[in-house]
Amino acid sequence: MGTYIARRLLWVPVLLFLVSFITFVLGQFGPGDPVQILLGQYSDPAAVQRIREQRGLDENVAVQYYRYISGVVQGDFGESYQYRGRSVGELLAKRIPVSAQLNLAALIISVGLGIPIGLFSALKQGSIWDTTSVAATLLAQSLPVFFTAPVLLLVFALKLDILPTHGWGGFFDSRIILPALVIGIPGVAIITRLTRASTLEVVHQDYVRTARAKGLGERAVITRHILRNALIPVVTTLGFALAGLASGSFIVELYFGIPGVGLLAIESLFARDYPIIMAVVIIGTTLFVLANLLIDLAYPFLDPRIRLGGGNIGG
């Protein structure tokens, strides 16, 4: 297991290098110039050139990348182009908690609804409830954010007029409800389906039959024997969701005017604020990769039959 972890960890910098380098180079070749955007509509080619030189934007891409990544390795993500005089770290530090709260609320919705619905469907397999929930989840999962967001706004904000449309007031503010639902609904579908599928697999296992045979009550069978085993794949997805906590939901944050990482990233894309874009990409990738690793490491604790790196699971 030690070598497995070491091997996986060694991959992390390689992946980060590839992702960051590709993002960096793509930025260089895209249209639009961050310095020109600072000047806005006013055209002053000499000023643009002067500032580009000062920032080293005219140098070879490899040189620029090396300089940038050397800073990042030392924890310095540089200075924002659009918010002048502000470090990227400072700006992100303000945004990450916002996105994290929003995503946590969404996660609570996904898990809170997904697990019970999935379990219920599986236990009532073939019933009308089961069919309905399978169909509903399939639908919910297929709906893109740019569809659910306006529809929820139309219903809850405009027609029923019970929820606000826009803005941010923290975790315990009613403005979090709609965006959290928009992010959470596809999650409900995923978790419902996962829970249902794995529960169905588990209920036919010998140990469940044994548990029933030894006279355990149905509640005890479900919580102690079925649920615990059925949740393994669910935990996997939760891990990914946790990795996503610190990264913003771009479209949802834009749509609802939530000052999180996603909104900052979109603003930065339009302002060609490369230092921020790079930081969002690098942090997002790192979290994703590490979360992935942690999930893999967590498996053996949940299911003793799984051995890491041994290839002895069989089949």
Binding site: G32, D33, Y42, S43
Partner: peptide, 25 residues
């Protein structure tokens, strides 16, 4: 066109006809 690209093309005189506003400085 998105703003950053629009600016670049505008300043490069690539546009035949364009719309924009000018505000006093």
């Amino acid at each position: 066109t998105e703003w950053a690209t629009f600016l670049q093309d505008l300043h490069a005189r690539r546009y035949q006809m364009f719309t924009i506003a000018w505000g006093a400085d």
